[in-house]
Design a protein around this nucleic acid. Structure first.
Length: 471
RNA sequence: CGGGGUGUGGCUCAGAUGGUAGAGCGCUUGGUUCGGGACCAAGAAGUCGCUGGUUCAAGUCCAGUCACUCCGACCA
């Protein structure tokens, strides 16, 4: 089998090669939609499991809303419908009969949740409602790429209603932090937390918060978002409750989402020219055992014994197929399995096994007796070093610009993010996009005062902003 | 939606000037191998993306269409 395209040569092609050859997904006969294969789906299941655990730990409950939204319902909130109308799929017929009202296939479920909240929230005693749903949504995209942008994608969408604006804002930030910690601790992907500019915020939100991560090619991927709707949707959908003082009040809402797109981030942050590299915490298989010269006496028995001992401790797999060992090494590297254990005749003599790390190919000789303690230890170190490597990569590609000239030349020559001061005007944001191809990624929570002046117009600066080219 | 590229066994591709469909890899079977993608032998596998046209004859020429892919604009 030939190698995958080198990422330095053609990053996009490298990405596609990895998705296909690591056996994560395949193209389907439906334009823009992909088949998520068992290995890719196992990855998603691990992401789901961990996120779901974190949602439950913060008091959320899972629900399920319908796939279809009546047109009249979608129309209720003006900004929302304007944002999504261009990319929804419509159902116009049921069997042979034309429907009296078109149904859209949900691009997101705010409107359905709102209608439901309007019917179940009556009193301050009914609040808050902290809901989440796991589902797929459809957006009629013009160009698609596996995981990064598909017409149908799997995600979770959290929807909550609260009594006060303060509570809604707290929830928005809480869930952004859940996402950020999940990315950093579980996926080993460093993120920048911040707020979206008005131009970039979600259709219908008063504030959108985001975590932005940097891919290997220096481009940004919005990895999770959390929206504060204030009482905008509540007013459009008439979601009111009676408070302790018998006053009728509008609720305050939030929504937040993370999708299978995050798998694209895992690929593009950790992957290398040998294929996928998975952080141990999310890897479907954490350790693969490869018997070497399995026809030699004692080898398969010992390999199975090691497999038995380790499978209670880590997600282990043993490959006893009749492939050449070299083929297996390459194959499991392609699939990003964090740790490989080789065991052959030479090891039997010395009562040892050879561990090989996926990230740096370091070989670690471990006495058989110590495997139970050493394997989890090495996995933990690997998880940690993947995060540190990604963090160094991101930090080393964040530049500062004090003038438009600097912004333009940096954007043209150096992949990565650029931070600069900004006056807050849409005009400057648009101009920067025109001149550099970069959009504002976020107004980070961690502000630095680089200067007093907007990088673009020279007027008084309001914020420091990260700019970047985005997926 | 604009611009470029590509559609031929599972995969990567070859098939000048139209004339009976090819290779390598993979797959199956048997044997030898086995510490970084092994070797030998035998086999199976294609209505040449789809529709129409030109022609005695189309993978090849023409028109249309669909899909994939890359680069822009729009978006999780």
């Amino acid at each position: 089998m030939e190698d995958i395209t080198s990422m330095d040569e053609d990053f996009s092609q490298w990405y596609t090669d990895v998705v296909l050859k690591a056996d994560l997904a395949d193209y389907s006969s439906v334009r823009g939609c992909m088949i998520i294969k068992p290995y890719g789906y196992a990855l998603w299941e691990n992401i789901q499991k961990e996120l779901d655990r974190r949602f439950k730990a913060t008091g959320h409950e899972n629900v399920y809303m319908p796939l279809f939204i009546p047109e009249s319902l979608l129309q209720k909130e003006k900004d929302h419908v304007e944002g999504f109308a261009p990319e929804v799929a419509w159902v116009t017929h049921g069997g042979e009969e034309k429907l009296t009202e078109r149904l859209c296939v949900r691009p997101t479920s705010e409107t359905l949740f709102c209608q439901h909240f309007a019917s179940v929230v009556k009193s301050y005693r009914d609040l808050p409602k902290l809901y989440n749903q796991w589902c797929s949504v459809v957006r009629w995209e013009k160009t698609t790429r596996p995981f990064l942008r598909t017409m149908e994608f799997l995600w979770q969408e959290g929807h909550t209603v609260h009594a006060t604006a303060e509570e809604a804002k707290e929830e928005t930030i809480r869930m952004l932090n859940v996402y950020a910690e999940f990315c950093e601790d579980f996926l080993a992907i460093p993120v920048i937390k911040g707020k979206k500019t008005d131009k970039e915020k979600f259709a219908g939100a008063i504030e959108t918060y985001t975590i932005e991560s940097m891919m290997h090619d220096g481009k940004a991927l919005q990895s999770g978002t959390s929206h504060n709707f204030g009482d905008k949707f509540a007013r459009a959908f008439n979601i009111q409750y009676t408070d302790r003082n018998n006053q009728l009040k509008y609720v305050h809402e939030t929504s937040w989402g993370m999708s299978t797109r995050i798998i694209g981030a895992v690929i593009m942050v950790h992957g290398d020219n040998n294929g996928l590299v998975l952080p141990p915490k999310v890897a479907p298989t954490q350790l693969v055992i490869i018997p070497v010269s399995p026809h030699k006496e004692g080898v398969p028995e010992k390999a199975r014994e090691v497999f038995q001992r380790l499978s209670g401790i880590v997600r282990a797999k043993i490959d006893e197929s009749d492939r050449m060992p070299g083929w297996k090494f390459a194959e499991y590297e392609m699939r990003g399995v964090p740790l490989r254990l080789e065991i052959g005749p030479r090891d039997l003599e010395k009562e040892q096994a050879v561990l090989v790390r996926r990230d740096n190919r370091e070989k670690i000789i471990v006495p058989l007796a110590e495997l139970e303690s050493r394997v989890p230890q090495v996995l933990e170190q690997l998880q940690q070093s993947l995060f540190e490597k990604a963090k160094r990569m991101m930090d080393s590609r964040i530049y500062t610009a004090g003038s438009m000239e600097e912004l333009e030349s940096t954007a043209a020559n150096l992949p990565g993010f650029i931070k600069s001061m900004w006056c807050g005007s849409r005009e400057c944001e648009d101009l920067i996009k025109d001149r550099t191809g970069m959009t504002s990624r976020c107004i980070p929570f961690e502000q630095e005062k680089l200067s007093d002046r907007c990088v673009c117009c020279g007027k008084e600066a309001k914020h420091m902003v990260y700019w970047g080219k985005a997926y």
